[in-house]
Design a protein around this nucleic acid. Structure first.
Lengths: 74, 74
DNA sequence: TCAAATATAGGCAAATTTGCTTACAATGTA
DNA sequence: TACATTGTAAGCAAATTTGCCTATATTTGA
């Protein structure tokens, strides 16, 4: 099976998430709690090791108080 | 396990993909070929039955010749 | 320096996505 | 009507994501 993972893109989005999180001065733990997901998951997303889903992006965007498309502004 | 799927959001993105595809007058089969994915996958994404990944969004955006964030402009 | 806070890493099981395939419905056209 | 095109549906196996957990590294502050 051929599973598409665009490393460049995934890492860029992760970087963007981290950037916005730090702008808001919150820890991964805080963001994870707000989003009701695991810290390790936030870490994986920010480091770009996983190719996360639309819903996670929407969830994180909501809790970073930005429009989901802002997370893809890379 | 609690897996997050935001039906509203996923369906909205699917609608947006369809909208852009039709604007370009191409079939699902054509888009699928361009993206090198399955037709059934395009269908699932447009109907919002799956919560697809960042890389798929980027892939589809590329082949619809829009910025990935335009697919999340919902 | 030491301790606390923060971030990274990895394993496991369950859930989902995806490619692949076949079948069928819907739509349009001659 | 008949035919082709287009889109929907569903099942299966493989791959990935995710939650949960524990452990370790890194950073920060007193």
């Amino acid at each position: 099976m051929r599973y598409l993972r665009d490393d460049r893109f995934v890492k860029a989005v992760g970087k963007r998430v981290r950037q916005l999180r730090l702008q808001r001065n919150i820890s991964q733990a805080q963001l994870a709690a707000d989003c009701d997901i695991e810290i390790s998951q936030v870490s994986r997303i920010e480091r770009g090791v996983i190719n996360t889903s639309l819903s996670q992006i929407n969830n994180i965007a909501k809790n970073l108080k930005v429009h989901p498309k802002d997370l893809l502004d890379v």
